[in-house]
């Protein structure tokens, strides 16, 4: 396995409660992987560990052949880990185009105070073109210059995805992208994601509740329950597993 992301026995404790108990997981280049589990299983904690928002109590995370221990969150982003949020986190007061332009400036690293002072800080035509391309890719042109507060949750999710993609990540972590969306919106989002992923070829780690959504997107699934990994394998195998059905799916499937 050409592991792009590899988590080895990640352990995290909160005051006596073991939120993650020796969880190992890997994502290959360009692979779409799902991470599912009931509420409180430790999915978001695992996410935060990957991003460096929480410190590990044991185990290690390597990304692209590099140990991430001690690498601050913003540097992990620059190494190529993008993410979206379960409760969307957008830059209030800014338009979708502004979101993309900011992310593009971070990626190309051309910002500097002295350039600002010489009026060289404005977006270049090159940067504008890249932002336009992303707006078009996600079908966001009609909303491009409206303040983000006036847009719906579904559009907000797309803007988050676009913002993450502007940094040209090798891996995108999607934290419950369908939460709060209705059936139709979820379908549109699935379609958009699949198209964009095929076009750009980045790897995805998807944390999700919506089983249909997971099934339609991912190739492999990991299942968390009470902080331990109870199953992993191809989508078909895992959803056939009886322990998974019991812990998570109930009699739904």
């Amino acid at each position: 396995m050409s592991g792009l992301l590899s988590a080895q026995s990640v352990t995290k404790k909160f005051a006596g409660i073991t939120a993650l108990d020796s969880v190992s997981l890997d994502v290959g280049d360009g692979e779409v992987v799902g991470l599912i589990g009931p509420n409180g299983a430790g999915k978001t904690t695992f996410f935060n560990c990957l991003l460096g928002l929480l410190k590990l109590d044991g185990g290690s995370v390597t990304f692209d052949g590099r140990d991430l221990a001690g690498v601050p969150t913003h540097k992990r982003a620059r190494l190529g880990i993008g993410r979206t949020f379960q409760r969307i986190e957008l830059f209030s007061g800014m338009s979708p185009r502004d979101h993309f332009l900011v992310a593009e400036r971070v990626r190309n690293g051309r910002g500097a105070l002295w350039k600002d002072l010489l009026f060289l800080g404005r977006p270049s035509s090159d940067e504008n073109a890249r932002a336009d391309a992303m707006l078009e890719l996600l079908g966001l042109q009609p909303a491009a210059d409206r303040p983000i507060e006036s847009l719906s949750l579904g559009v907000g999710r797309l803007v988050e995805i676009g913002r993450a993609l502007m940094t040209e990540p090798k891996l995108v972590l999607l934290d419950e992208p369908s939460s709060g969306l209705d059936r139709h919106e979820t379908e549109v989002l699935t379609e958009q994601l699949r198209t964009v992923q095929r076009e750009r070829g980045f790897a995805v780690l998807l944390v999700e509740h919506d089983v249909e959504f997971v099934r339609s997107l991912v190739e492999r699934v990991f299942v968390l329950d009470f902080g331990t990994l109870i199953a992993s394998g191809t989508t078909a195998e895992v959803f056939a597993d009886s322990a998974v059905r019991k812990a998570y799916l109930g009699d739904m499937v």
Binding site: L51, L53, T73, H74, K75, A77, R78, G82, R83, F85, E89, L90, F91, S92, G93, M94, D98, L101, V102, A103, R105, V106, R107, R110, G111, A112, L113, K115, D116, L117, F119, L120, G121, R122, E160, R163, A164, M166, T167
Partner: peptide, 23 residues
């Protein structure tokens, strides 16, 4: 209107999101 101002706008909007794109 330059990079610094835009980064600060982004940070005011959401600090976690700003960190997530590498600011």
């Amino acid at each position: 209107s330059g990079t610094t101002g835009r980064y600060l706008d982004a940070l005011r909007g959401s600090e976690t999101a700003a960190a997530s794109i590498g600011i």
